[in-house]
Amino acid sequence: LIHGGVRYLQKAIMKLDIEQYRMVKEALHERANLLEIAPHLSAPLPIMLPIYKWWQLPYYWVGIKLYDLVAGSNCLKSSYVLSKSRALEHFPMLQKDKLVGAIVYYDGQHNDARMNLAIALTAARYGAATANYMEVVSLLKKTDPETGKDCVRGARCKDVLTGQEFDVRAKCVINATGPFTDSVRKMDDKNAAAICQPSAGVHIVMPGYYSPESMGLLDPATSDGRVIFFLPWQKMTIAGTTDTPTDITSHPIPS
Rank of each mutant, 00 (worst) to 15 (best):
M115K: 00
K158A: 10
P145I: 03
R125T: 12
K158I: 06
K149R: 06
K142A: 08
D112E: 11
R114Q: 12
Q164G: 04
M115F: 02
Y126C: 07
I119D: 08
K149N: 02
A118V: 06
A124K: 15
A155W: 05
G108N: 04
M115C: 07
G148I: 05
K98D: 11
G154I: 05
K96T: 09
L139T: 01
K149D: 00
A123L: 13
D112I: 14
L121Q: 13
Q109T: 14
L117T: 09
G163N: 08
K141Y: 06
E135N: 03
P145D: 01
T122N: 15
L140Q: 11
R156S: 06
L161Y: 00
V152C: 15
N116K: 11
D97T: 11
E146Y: 07
G108L: 07
G127P: 04
G148Q: 05
L161H: 07
H110P: 01
V152Q: 06
L117G: 05
E165H: 01
G163T: 07
Y105H: 06
G108I: 05
E165Q: 11
V152W: 05
G127N: 11
D159A: 02
V152R: 06
V160P: 03
R114C: 03
L121G: 05
K158M: 11
A118D: 08
P92Q: 09
T130F: 07
Q95T: 08
A155Q: 01
A123S: 12
V104I: 13
D159I: 02
T143G: 00
G108A: 05
A128L: 10
D150V: 00
A123Q: 09
A128D: 10
Q109E: 13
N111C: 12
P92V: 05
M93K: 13
N132M: 13
E135W: 08
V136T: 14
R156V: 08
E135P: 01
A155K: 01
T147F: 14
